[in-house]
């Protein structure tokens, strides 16, 4: 199957060639429920050191946690890359996994393909991608079924 793309929000900073003040990459392992949330927690601790607005840190952390749990539930592995830019913070999350056959459907609140085991952890109710969308200013999904998914999301620091 072919790659499909979906995006929302007005891109302000180019994905290539932007000035990166700080970068960090954290590996996430699929099916590792016991550590599900650690990547989001680590990135939150880093962001606090930059003295960013707590509301921005909270929004990005919520997006990160949902995205991290999606990897644990649906993918084999992923790299979560944080980039702190002069006027934005953003995350690029590339996974190796089953991909998303229908992104439009996956973005509908309540649409879920989760198993009972996922739901026992308090996730898998079809709110993950909508929660990321709700908390970010730019959000892009690029997915190829059978290969994997890349999420890119950004929060603007001013205006």
């Amino acid at each position: 199957m072919n790659e499909s793309r979906w995006s929302t929000g007005e891109p302000r900073v180019p994905w290539e060639g932007a000035e990166i003040l700080y970068g960090e990459s954290i590996r996430i392992v699929g099916d590792d429920f016991e550590h599900g949330g650690e990547a989001a927690a680590k990135i939150k601790a880093i962001l606090k050191q930059f003295g960013l607005d707590p509301a921005v840190i909270r929004r990005l952390s919520i997006a990160n946690f949902e995205a991290e749990m999606n990897v644990i539930m649906y993918a084999q592995e992923a790299e979560m890359q944080l980039q702190v830019l002069p006027d934005a913070v953003r995350v690029i999350l590339s996974d190796r996994g089953q991909g998303i056959p229908d992104i439009g459907q996956a973005l509908q609140e309540g649409y879920s393909t989760a198993t009972p085991r996922m739901r026992q952890r308090g996730f898998g109710a079809g709110l993950g991608l909508p929660n990321i969308r709700r908390n970010t200013d730019e959000f892009e999904i690029i997915s190829t079924p059978g290969v994997g998914t890349t999420l890119r999301y950004t929060i603007h620091l001013q205006g």
């Binding site: 949330g37 989001a40 952390s61 749990m69 026992q120």
Partner: peptide
Amino acid sequence: TGLASIQSAHTADVAD
């Protein structure tokens, strides 16, 4: 909550 998994603690952290 009645959910006592590690995710409840991460949720409390992430959501302040």
